[in-house]
Design a protein around this nucleic acid. Structure first.
Length: 267
DNA sequence: CCATGTACCTGAAGGC
DNA sequence: TGCCTTCAGGTACATG
């Protein structure tokens, strides 16, 4: 579910709502969701900063860190009342002003790590797709380190992080590149253009508060609206917006994959 | 190194 | 209604 724009939307809201609050208690309703290797007790710690790398949300606490991954169906929801546990609530944090942060996750794939060493998790994650340090030259260099197809390259979080299945298909469509193109075969100009497309599409999706296909909600429980602007994702069989040919939907790189075999070229 | 399959989970949707 | 299959925004791990 949530990819970079959805995670960014959530952390911007959390920054406004829960920064500098202190955790006074928390409850775990599904043990696999909450993993701790920290020396510190969570109760009594204050949230001093909220950032993200790719799809990982990072709470810097007065001591230790919480690293949160929403995976497919996780939602972080701010709740100002002492509401009771709802269906699929996996972890609830209670703050010193009695407000709460609820981690609700239908499929139980999401994870919250309490750790003193966030680098153990984050060092394997590549540079964030919207990081200003991700220059065209750096992107070109990363592409040429890999012989994978470009769809798998972008889905893998180890080169650049933040893109998932929806935005990979959208970016490759806009850039006119088939998912089958080998990363290292993309020439410099095309690579620069692809990076520009990636940044544009992600930034536009953030303006739209993310894409809600089924389960994604922001921290206030609201839908995003970027699903109204998708050009290929979930449009299998429908006419391409550029050329009218039917959009292909196949299984590729382990995921449902949408593309136009007229507008998108293999390099 | 790369591609593919499976596991982790629940629920919605479609076929019969 | 109900039963079965397929699919879903992600990632880790095993196997060729």
């Amino acid at each position: 579910m949530p990819e970079l724009p959805e995670v960014e939307t959530v952390i911007r809201e959390l920054q406004k709502e829960i920064l500098f609050k202190t955790i006074i208690s928390y409850s775990v309703f599904w043990n696999k969701t909450f993993v701790s290797d920290s020396e510190h007790k969570l109760n009594g710690l204050t949230i001093n900063n909220i950032t993200r790398k790719g799809k990982y949300i990072i709470f810097s606490l007065s001591q230790s860190f919480l690293i949160i991954h929403l995976r497919m169906t996780g939602n972080l929801l701010i709740s100002d009342s002492m509401g009771n546990k709802k269906k699929h609530d996996r972890v609830i944090f209670v703050f010193d002003d009695n407000s709460q942060l609820v981690f609700n996750d239908i499929r139980k794939f999401g994870r919250i790590y309490h750790t003193d060493r966030p680098e153990n998790i984050l060092s394997r994650v590549g540079i964030d797709a919207l990081d200003s340090r991700l220059t065209p030259n750096l992107f070109y260099g990363l592409l040429h380190k890999s012989k994978r197809n470009i769809k798998a390259f972008l889905l893998s979080q180890e080169y650049i992080s933040g893109l998932g299945n929806i935005y990979v298909d959208e970016c490759l469509f806009r850039a006119g590149i088939t998912p089958f193109t080998i990363s290292a075969n993309i020439r410099r100009e095309k690579a620069h253009a692809l990076l520009e497309v990636i940044k544009e599409i992600l930034e536009f999706a953030i303006i739209n508060m993310g894409t809600t296909i089924s389960d994604y909600r922001d921290a206030f429980g609201n839908f995003g609206s970027n699903q109204n602007f998708l050009k290929v994702y979930q449009r299998g069989g429908l006419p391409c917006f550029k050329c009218g040919a039917p959009i292909k939907r196949i299984w590729y790189a382990g995921r449902g994959t949408h593309y136009c075999n007229v507008c998108q070229k293999t390099f």
